[in-house]
């Protein structure tokens, strides 16, 4: 039974990862990252349940806090980029290309 939680987490994580890889809209990419974070939270919570200690839940809580801070910053960055480029696509400017 517990393995099923993990498998669910794996599926969610993988879907999030694939979304991160194939989408070009920065917002959706960000959502995919959130999806991956949630998948990891699920692992933490389920393992907390398996081991009978609350530390996993605390860790999940911290993950949520950090995710919230990350969302704030990330969305600010997206808004800033949008303001400069009128687009949220990550392909418009290949800034990493030398």
């Amino acid at each position: 039974m517990t393995d099923l939680y993990l498998v669910l987490a794996v599926i969610l994580f993988s879907v999030g990862l694939v979304g991160f890889l194939i989408r070009r809209n920065a917002l959706i990419i960000f959502m995919s990252i959130e999806l991956m974070l949630n998948a990891s939270n699920l692992v933490l919570v389920s393992m907390s349940h398996v081991h009978g200690v609350l530390d996993g839940q605390v860790a999940a809580f911290f993950v949520m806090v950090v995710a919230a801070a990350e969302v704030v910053i990330g969305l600010s960055i997206i808004v800033t980029i949008f303001r400069a480029r009128r687009s949220t696509s990550v392909d418009n400017e290949i800034l990493l290309k030398g």
């Binding site: 989408r23 990493l96 290309k97």
Partner: peptide
């Protein structure tokens, strides 16, 4: 491979 697309790099990492 160094095409400048982050997602391409991510795929490589994966």
């Amino acid at each position: 491979l160094q095409n400048g697309y982050v997602r391409s790099y991510g795929l490589t990492m994966l």
